[in-house]
Structures are given as C-alpha cells and as structure tokens.
Design a protein around this nucleic acid. Structure first.
Lengths: 199, 199
DNA sequence: TATAAAACCGACCGATCATTCGGTTGGGCT
DNA sequence: AGCCCAACCGAATGATCGGTCGGTTTTATA
C-alpha cells in the first residue's frame, strides 16, 4: 500500500475512534511509519487530510447504495424498505470507522464554515434519505405502505435505524439483538391499515 | 452568581457546543472573567471540571423525570408512553446544552477509562430506558400496547426519539415538523393489534 | 546511464495548551 | 483590631501541537 493510502487509512481510524483534535500528527506518524514531513507532502494540512477522508467516505457510501439500488428487486415497496434497512445495517457493520466518523460532531461543526465539508455531508444524508423515501413512495404507490408524508416517514425510519447503529458504537448496550424488533417496528410504522388521523 | 457556578455554566455551553478538547481554559477564563488560577482553585483539573458538569446533567435529568413520574396520570399505558415522549422532547428543548453534551462522543470515550464518568452516563441512560420500559409494560398489562419485549421496544422508541432530537442539533434538517409524525409512528409501533410473528 | 520529478525524511519553529505558584483581597469570626 | 481561610489573581512553565524546510532517496522516463 502506498504511504498516502496508509496515512488515509490510519487517519480514518484515529479520527473516527479518538476524534480530530484528539489525534495528533505525531500519532499518525507513529502509526504509519511516515515522517512528519511526508504527511504534509501529501496533504497540505490537517483539515485537508480530513476532507480527503470525508470525500472517500462519501464516494464509498454513495457507490454502495447505487450498487444496491441496481441489484435490488423486491415484490413491493414494503419489502424494498426492509431491504434498504438491512443493507444499511450490514454496511454500517462493514464500514464501522466511516460510519462512526459521520456520527461525530466535528464534521458538522466544520461544515458550518467549510462549504466543501458541508457538501460532502449533505450529499451522504440526501443519498440515504432519498433511497428511504423512494422505497416508501413505491410502497405507497403499490399499496403495501401507508404513509402521510413519505419524506417525513423516511426521516423517522432513518432516525430509528441510525439510532440503533449508534447504540452499538457507544458501549452501553448490545444492539445486535434489536435487529429483529427493529424490522418489525418499521413494518408497523409502514403498514397501519387505517390512518384515522384524529383531530 | 458565584464564580464557580459561572465557570460551570460557561464550560457546559462551551464543551457541548465546541467540544472538550476544542475548549481551552483561556476560553473559559475569557468568557467568565475568572483568572486562570481561579478555575484550578475550584476544580483540580479540566477532567474534574468535566465530571462536575456531567454530575449536574445527571442530577438534573434524573430529578426532572422523577418529578414527571410523580405528576403524570394517564388513562392507559399507551398514553403514558406518549406523555413520556413529549416530556422528553420538551426537556431536550429546554436543556439543549446538557442534551448536546450527552450526544457527543467524548463522554463515552472517557467512560471507557473513568468509572465515575461511566456511572453518570449509565445512570442517565438507565433512567431514560426504565421510564420508557415502565410505560410500555403498563400498556401491555392494560391491553393498550402490544410489545413482545418491553425492554427492546423501549430501546427502539428511545433510539427514534433521540435520533429526531439529534436532527435538530445537526443543522441539516429542521426536525420540529417531525413531531406529529413521530408520535403517530410510535403509536403504530405499539398498537399493532395482531402480532403475526412469522417464522 | 542521465535527469527530473515525486516521495520521503527528521530536525526545527512559533504558538498554544493545561497546570503551577507566590501573592493579594475580602468577608466572617473572636 | 487582629486573624484566618477561601476566593481570586496573573505571570511563568514545560510539554505538545500543527506546520516548515533543506536535503536525501526512490521512481519513472528517455
């Protein structure tokens, strides 16, 4: 592996596990075997290194879901939603560090002053919400799903699924046993036959 | 307000908005008007200051929910769950900084090596999960709620509600308009009449 | 093999950090 | 008044940080 990629890989792990400020360039230097100057030869500063990592995260997630979208073939919208959820859970398990990075606050703080950073984050979140919404809307059309607002429903599903993956990274709970209940709960949200709409 | 309390208040705001490492003692000194030495007169170091804040957060949240538990009187378990959820959302709005602090990664990282920190965090999370679970169990008993595992159901509800409050702190979405859909979705999760339990 | 560019090195720099310490202030007690 | 102790101050300190720079090695090309 090239030294540049080794730096990117180590930084992804350290930034996601320990945080951006908490990771020093000498930590990176020690972990990769690269001299201090070498890191700054490949990346103009620490922030630029972080943005390159975020770029990789965005590209990886977008392409993974694009591939999923092509290959998936479900009977109806409800099954499509469930397929998206389990794909999300599986991906979050495989790319633990990258998802953990997106669960940190630093990227969102940086996004307030850095347009490139904000565009990466918006791109990822829009991608995820769009694919949830698309599946919900398909379900509404074919009658397998009941939802007043597909976008809001997508956000609630995303909040719940993402919250469960977060439980795993915090070490307070073991969330793996929640997966079956999670899928069932999502189905309940989506398949209420009568939408009484009180008030 | 005493200088000690001013330091605690300013540190709560700065740690939650900007992060622990990102907040310097000179920032705190500037914001409170207290000299550097004064901060270390009241708290033996930066970590001790953080732990005192976490202690306050824990006490505030626990007493708020204890008060809610005393005063609440609902017709059935389902209404009780909905009452807990709206109380949680209201509290998260009133105590934005404290909840934001709990959404950061730093406390959970510190909990890995600091027993006191871990006990504060576990105390808060157990309190929240317990009150959700209690309401769900009450609903199962009086027939207003259907749930295979009250604990797992409580965790899923918590994950969803907490995820929505998180959407507000990240500035990508405006989550306030989600509240009605959130309550409706929770009701759907809880009131599925038939639990077909396939497989 | 000659040459230029890219990769790499590590000593060095100024800035900033958390923390220390000797000294000052002011309110409560006798 | 005299005393004490907690609250408070701010200059000083050593460590660590992100980043620079002049020079060496490796690689690609011809």
């Amino acid at each position: 592996m090239s030294k540049r990629n080794a730096i990117l890989a180590a930084a992804t792990r350290l930034f996601s596990r320990n945080g951006f400020k908490e990771t020093s360039m000498s930590d990176l230097s020690r972990m990769t075997g690269a001299a201090g100057g070498t890191i700054f030869h490949h990346f103009k500063n620490k922030e630029d290194l972080f943005l390159n990592i975020l770029k990789d995260v965005q590209e990886t997630i977008l392409s993974a879901f694009a591939r999923h979208k092509e290959t998936m073939a479900y009977g109806n919208g409800l099954e499509m939603v469930e397929g998206v959820i389990s794909f999300y859970l599986q991906l979050a398990g495989e790319m633990e560090d990258q998802f953990l990075l997106l669960h940190r606050h630093y990227p969102y703080q940086m996004a307030e002053t850095n347009d490139l950073c904000r565009s990466y984050l918006e791109s990822v979140h829009n991608c995820l919400l769009d694919i949830f919404e698309e599946a919900v809307s398909a379900g509404v059309k074919d009658g397998s799903v009941t939802a007043a607002s597909p976008r809001n429903t997508a956000m609630l599903l995303f909040a719940m699924v993402d919250g469960v993956t977060r439980f795993n990274t915090y070490n307070l709970y073991h969330a793996a046993s929640l997966y079956q209940d999670l899928i069932r709960s999502c189905r309940n949200i989506l398949t209420r036959e009568t939408s009484p709409d009180p008030m």
